[in-house]
């Protein structure tokens, strides 16, 4: 009896140190940030010297117009870039999923943007959007068209950061989508073809549903990243004009470093974390449903073949 107990516990005992270290490494910073959000803490103080203010930082955020604006800019940005990048990335994957000469080189070129450091991407686009020497306005002028106020008008500036993000991160979606596409079971494809499915019908009814679990995780990863994007926007617009491109990560960074309000910055980070956690849970729930659907589809295809 005792031996059976020891045998049952052995794996847990072996795993325990790693689990404890991981839990401490993950949970300690989060706990620290939650605690900091209840303090009136500036960087000149040690955390122990900061005044406990309860929920005051959260109450302040609820009334702070600039925070609200940042919050909505972030949501708008994340939703727009993820939707557009998913459409383009998946579209490109379907387009390039074929055996053509030079395809390997082409695929490598496609993934180059995501390998460039975000600061460099920001600088590069900032100069391309430059009102007089930037390539876009010079081209427009050479065609006899009016220059565009890329970064000096709120709406255009928002569009400009969306374009830069799409340029950098569509390849990420493309790579994962292509991998998912190429690992689809050939039996399912054959069965669909035997049933007469070709072209759009094959993509829409067979390939996309089978790829959906991967696509959802991909979209989730991009969504999380889009909510935290900082460097490119910092360099390109620094949040301006006005607050038109001030995404939450930038607001948090400014609150901590420029305004020196670490407690408020921690409260903002916690709200962002909460939002991302809810989003992740929702996505995982949806993944479960689509995985079950894909499994049913796969089983049916295998049965048919």
């Amino acid at each position: 009896m005792q031996t059976a107990n020891v045998n049952r516990l052995t794996p847990y005992l072996f795993l325990a140190p790693a689990v404890i270290v991981l839990a401490v490494a993950l949970l300690y910073p989060i706990g620290y940030m939650i605690w900091a959000s209840f303090l009136n803490w500036n960087p000149s103080q040690r955390i122990g010297e900061a005044e406990f203010v309860g929920l005051r930082n959260y109450m302040f955020l609820l009334q702070d117009g600039a925070f609200r604006e940042s919050f909505f800019v972030t949501i708008r940005f994340a939703v727009i870039v993820v939707v557009l990048e998913m459409c383009l990335g998946v579209g490109l994957a379907f387009l390039l999923d074929r055996k053509l000469r030079g395809m390997t080189v082409l695929r490598t070129i496609f993934i180059l943007p995501m390998m460039i450091a975000p600061i460099v991407v920001g600088l590069m686009w900032r100069y391309m959007y430059h009102p007089s020497v930037g390539i876009f306005n010079r081209t427009l002028k050479s065609l006899g068209l009016d220059p565009v106020p890329w970064l000096s008008n709120g709406d255009w500036a928002f569009a400009s950061i969306v374009i830069a993000d799409i340029w950098q991160w569509t390849p990420f979606i493309f790579i994962l989508s292509l991998a998912a596409l190429q690992s689809l079971p050939s039996s399912a494809m054959e069965a669909a073809r035997i049933d007469g499915a070709t072209g759009w019908r094959l993509i829409w009814h067979i390939k996309l549903p089978l790829m959906m679990p991967v696509l959802i995780v991909t979209a989730l990863l991009r969504m999380i990243d889009a909510f935290k994007v900082l460097e490119v926007i910092l360099v390109m617009t620094n949040g301006g004009p006005g607050l038109s491109t001030e995404i939450l990560a930038l607001r948090i960074s400014r609150t901590a470093s420029e305004f020196r309000e670490l407690g408020t910055a921690a409260a903002m980070s916690n709200l962002l974390l909460l939002l991302l956690m809810l989003l992740t849970l929702a996505m995982f729930a949806y993944t479960k449903i689509t995985e079950a659907r894909a499994a049913r589809l796969r089983a049916r295809a295998e049965k048919d073949s």
Partner: peptide, 20 residues
């Protein structure tokens, strides 16, 4: 000490004056 947040507010508002 609170100049950082006042400065940022002033600067973003003036940017709105200039661009919007």
């Amino acid at each position: 000490p609170v100049w950082g947040s006042i400065n940022a507010d002033l600067g973003t508002t003036l940017s709105q004056v200039l661009t919007e």
